[in-house]
Design a protein around this nucleic acid. Structure first.
Lengths: 193, 193
DNA sequence: CCTCAACCTGACCATACGGTCAGAAAAAGA
DNA sequence: TCTTTTTCTGACCGTATGGTCAGGTTGAGG
């Protein structure tokens, strides 16, 4: 799987640090063959980023058919942390792309992501109006959800060092519980303990 | 200022994408002169990263002499968001470094950062024991603090696109208020609204 | 068995990059 | 002023990289 190999190399070395030779080696085929499927390094990179963005958006729909914030946002946190765990490399490539000014997926940000964000912000506003949660700024809440979940992928190395090794099953469970507990209580969607 | 120029270029292009020529141009001196002050690209990069780490640690001390979590963690959030605003490039370079496995500052993670983290986790545990906040996992709380504050620097581009332009003074104030409100209420350090 | 298109590959090329170096300016001492 | 040390610079070099290309291999259709 070329895309898988490319994702790994791009995540580990960044776009500039990645070489077609490295990707080819990891995918187990000669470099020239890569150029048969992807004309340029940028084309391959774009394919990787778009693949991640799709996963990202798909998983985001768990928030849709939820009765209230505790259920909807809770499920969203679980889903995003699961992505951080299963697709850590993808998350890193995405983070890298955005950090460098989104040279490749600027249009996605301005269309798909902007629409998605506006939609979910509206849902949150509705929940607030229905008295199901505190009056928090929906956009900043969304940023916080993204930040605290993706952090486990993007800064996974740092977390592993501080944790003294890779996160165990129990560690991941604790992470999910902690993030959900703090945020849900923080937005007044949980009874205060 | 060479370090300033290097920080900008490394932040915008990543280590692999940055070139000594670009940094030299931005600093306004010939490339060969860069190599007079910094023998290799890696040496320059290391200097940039270490500079950021110092800022990062220094600002972290606001949490020290605080009576309780509302005050201490609140001040820490303010300080870290201020860093995200004033040193966005530095934050990006740090994020990039960690994301790629911390090839240069691995030792810092294992010594200074690990010690700092353990110390602050102890403070949080004390606050919990004193009944000043809810029983949350201190480590995961710290990760959440880092994530939700640094996000405004590392993903600043994405936020600006969604915001329809750079964050205004009021936007930054709202960001600080939102993050503090949700987290402080989330850890039971604020009266529930 | 032949044809043709899709798939694959070793060898090659132009370029851009990190780094070097001999020596010029400039500054600091005497 | 002369000497020495530090700072600076244009020109240059070896290498690694993205990309090309002519030709080989494979396999489905007839």
């Amino acid at each position: 799987m070329i895309l898988k190999a490319a994702e790994t190399v791009f995540a580990e070395a960044g776009f500039g640090g990645a070489t077609m030779q490295l990707i080819a080696d990891m995918a187990g085929l000669p470099k020239a063959n890569l150029h048969y499927y992807f004309a340029t390094k940028e084309a391959l990179y774009r394919a990787v980023v778009e693949r991640i963005f799709r996963i990202w958006l798909t998983a985001a729909n768990v928030m849709d058919d939820a009765a209230g914030p505790a259920e909807g946002i809770g499920a969203y946190i679980d889903a995003k942390l699961e992505i951080s765990r299963r697709h850590a490399n993808g998350s890193k490539v995405w983070a890298s792309e955005v950090m460098h000014g989104a040279p490749v997926i600027q249009d996605y940000l301005e269309t798909t992501l902007r629409d998605w964000t506006a939609g979910r912000a509206a849902v949150i506003r509705r929940w607030i109006a229905e008295g199901k949660m505190a009056e928090v700024n929906p956009e900043h809440l969304l940023y916080m959800l993204w930040a605290s979940t993706q952090h486990y992928a993007d800064f996974g190395h740092q977390i592993e060092v501080l944790n003294g090794g890779p996160l165990s099953e129990a560690d991941w469970t604790a992470a999910k519980a902690s993030v959900k507990e703090i945020i849900l209580r923080g937005i007044g969607a949980l009874p205060p303990s």
